[in-house]
């Protein structure tokens, strides 16, 4: 795979400030990665190297941790993150078919991003709203009792928003 052009920055003042604010520097790696992802959206190679340098740990350790936990992304995500719950309660109420409908509608597979950078499709494990199963989350918004027929409407809602934003 061709090397993506990584964002090269001399420093990450947000990370420095966060590091300084930690009362206990032990076990700071995961909190640092959480913060970095919150600030920059994903953990680029540069950010990982910077965190390694800052904490005085090998880059391999940072990479090892970043890839171990499913919440950390090493790649940039789409503007809207569509998360289909594949927890057990949603699964037995048909969320797999909902996920497939999104794959068809967006013409991407799960954990991929559309070429226009608008949508990232992913599955998640239980948001704890099992009473509304099957559940889909777009960003922070929760859609309950979703059927494959609802999928186009949900995607259109955000296509509309993106259109407004550009116009």
């Amino acid at each position: 795979m061709a090397q993506e052009s990584v964002e090269v920055r001399e420093s990450y003042p947000e990370l420095d400030a966060f590091y300084d604010s930690l009362s206990d520097k032990n076990g700071a790696l995961i909190p640092m990665l959480h913060r970095a992802q919150g600030e920059y959206g994903y953990l680029s190679q540069d950010v990982q190297l910077y965190v390694a340098h800052k904490l005085g740990v090998p880059a391999s350790k940072v990479y090892g941790v970043a890839t171990f936990y499913s919440l950390f992304n090493l790649e940039r995500k789409g503007q809207y993150k569509i998360n289909v719950c594949l927890g057990t309660a949603c699964y037995v109420r048909g969320s797999e078919a909902v996920l497939e409908a999104f794959e068809k509608e967006l013409n991407i597979k799960r954990s991929e991003t559309t070429s226009d950078g608008l949508f990232t499709l992913a599955s998640i494990r239980c948001v704890g709203a099992c009473g509304l199963a099957p559940v889909v989350m777009v960003g922070e918004k929760v859609y309950g009792r979703v059927t494959p027929d609802d999928v186009k409407g949900i995607v259109d809602e955000y296509l509309g928003k993106a259109g407004e934003g550009n116009g």
Binding site: D24, N26, G27, A28, I30, H34, F68, Y69, F72
Partner: peptide
């Protein structure tokens, strides 16, 4: 008391994994 945030790993429900994670490592 302090809060510590998990980052999405089922195995961290296992107590020794959870402690490794609190220490900033792979769970």
């Amino acid at each position: 008391l302090k809060l510590y945030f998990g980052a999405g790993a089922f195995v961290c429900g296992e107590e020794t994994s959870l402690m490794n994670s609190v220490q900033g490592g792979r769970g």
